[in-house]
Design a protein around this nucleic acid. Structure first.
Lengths: 146, 146
DNA sequence: AGCACATAGTTAGCATGCTAACGAAATAGA
DNA sequence: TCTATTTCGTTAGCATGCTAACTATGTGCT
């Protein structure tokens, strides 16, 4: 019954990303890159790479590579931070902002397809439960780190 | 509000796997390998590699590598199929079955930690909603394939 | 029977995730 | 003040996912 909830969580998360990626590919973006862009927009421009990595859900070195690619593609830029020489802040370029507009349309359309047959009540519950699970997981990982 | 449901789905699926993996590592297993073993058990021994790959949620070549590793570790074996020379069926060895027993304990404990604070009603709804989403996604991918 | 096509598994090579280790800059403590 | 530690970004190298292409076997059409 609930013995495969973890299993379903994984499948659902993975296949969701695959579907959206299918459409994002038409914009010339790979999964890694559009995820980074969307999260940058969500977190807010000017954040540090560490903060961005944590929100994307990858380790810093993984993000460094992706940001390098996005920078090379002229979608973002990294600026040095006068207040803290260790950090570099991340910003969208005009081209990046323009692309993001298109991406949001794609993400919304994908969401609509994937949530077909799911009531608004269920959506709300899903949202809440997912947040609980993520919070629990973070607590566990935090605890284990010691 | 619901604009980041896809985002949460992904995070939750990913972090769930990370947490369980944390404990599975103590059994000497990597994420890829324990997932394959659990799914083999769920789908049933004697299935073909294609069926197993579909259920694990990876492409065949990815699974081939993993099965090679599991076979080398003496946890599974691949047998030729007398009825269809193209297929090879996958079976657990005694060592594999024994390890699986331990893995199920780990998976159950992990699930317990991750679902803390989630009511049984919410669990049921989560289960149903995830199945709807997966089903929708499969339909979309199927459609796109044409 | 024979030829085109489909299917299962595999191999090769690329993309992307990770950990480990490093340098530069900030911070804390003697 | 100056030394040890922490933090941020990076590089290097390994593990694992993917697609493309190949071989072997089965299937279907003529």
């Amino acid at each position: 019954m609930e013995s495969n909830l973890g299993w379903l969580m994984n499948r659902a998360g993975h296949i969701w990303r695959t579907v959206v990626d299918h459409y994002m590919a038409e914009l010339g973006l790979t999964q890694t890159r559009w995820v980074a862009l969307l999260v940058l927009d969500k977190v807010g421009e000017g954040c540090t790479q560490t903060v961005l990595a944590a929100n994307v859900g990858v380790e810093q070195p993984s993000l460094v590579r992706t940001l390098g690619q996005l920078e090379e593609a002229g979608l973002i830029e990294r600026r040095t931070n006068p207040e803290d020489g260790r950090c570099r802040t991340v910003w969208l370029t005009d081209a990046g902002r323009e692309l993001l507009g298109k991406m949001e349309v794609v993400a919304r359309d994908g969401r609509k397809l994937l949530l077909k047959g799911v009531s608004s009540e269920q959506r709300k519950m899903l949202h809440d439960v997912l947040e609980i699970i993520i919070s629990n997981a973070q607590a566990v990982l935090e605890e284990e780190r010691k």
